[in-house]
């Protein structure tokens, strides 16, 4: 009974050596190596850790795709203007901020869900009579946060941030 057990142990050892990953070629980019190490460190329960986000985002030339270990951070700056019929500077600021938030949401939706573009040109006798372009954005946004707000000379700018992670999309 002892010899078959030893034989099985040797066979398993050889099989593991044969399955060991080979060294990456020199022609491969460093980004791929860093990404591979990031995958190795990724836990099995699909939890995205903050340091992983920072490490992966500093890599240049990576494809901008969502993977279990790679999160995408989107920063946009929305702009809004106060209406002319406000009764106080405070109300003007509040209204401009509302408009800026809506604009920031629009920009995030454009980045995430894309834009539907439709154009019509009416040409008569080789002269453009009417040119019309319509764009449409439609999306559901969750967990967007306001990073910074500034208000100057009636223009409010809101910097909004959203982090797309694998778990937030799947779950």
């Amino acid at each position: 009974m002892r010899y078959p057990t030893l034989a099985m142990t040797f066979l398993a050892g050889f099989a593991l050596i044969g399955c060991a990953p080979t060294q990456p070629q020199q022609s491969e980019q460093n980004a791929t190596m860093v990404l591979t190490s990031a995958y190795d460190r990724c836990s099995g329960d699909m939890q995205i850790k903050p340091y992983m986000i920072e490490n992966v985002e500093t890599i240049r030339g990576l494809p901008n795709q969502l993977t279990p270990c790679h999160s995408i951070r989107i920063n946009v700056v929305g702009q809004g203007v106060a209406p002319t019929t406000t009764i106080s500077p405070a109300q003007a600021f509040a209204m401009a901020k509302r408009a800026a938030v809506a604009d920031a949401y629009r920009m995030i939706a454009e980045r995430i869900a894309g834009v539907h573009v439709e154009g019509h040109d009416f040409i008569k006798n080789m002269v453009v009579q009417r040119s019309e372009v319509r764009t449409k954005v439609d999306a559901l946004i969750r967990n967007a946060t306001i990073a910074e707000t500034s208000y100057k000379e009636g223009l409010c700018e809101v910097e909004m941030e959203i982090i797309l992670s694998y778990t937030s999309v799947v779950l």
Partner: peptide
């Protein structure tokens, strides 16, 4: 509310290089 979800709809129309937009949150 932002922690949950918001529906964003944006319509933009440009006629002869004059643009108007409507955003609904």
């Amino acid at each position: 509310l932002r922690q949950h979800f918001l529906h964003v709809q944006h319509l933009e129309r440009s006629v002869n290089h004059t643009t108007s937009s409507l955003t609904t949150l």
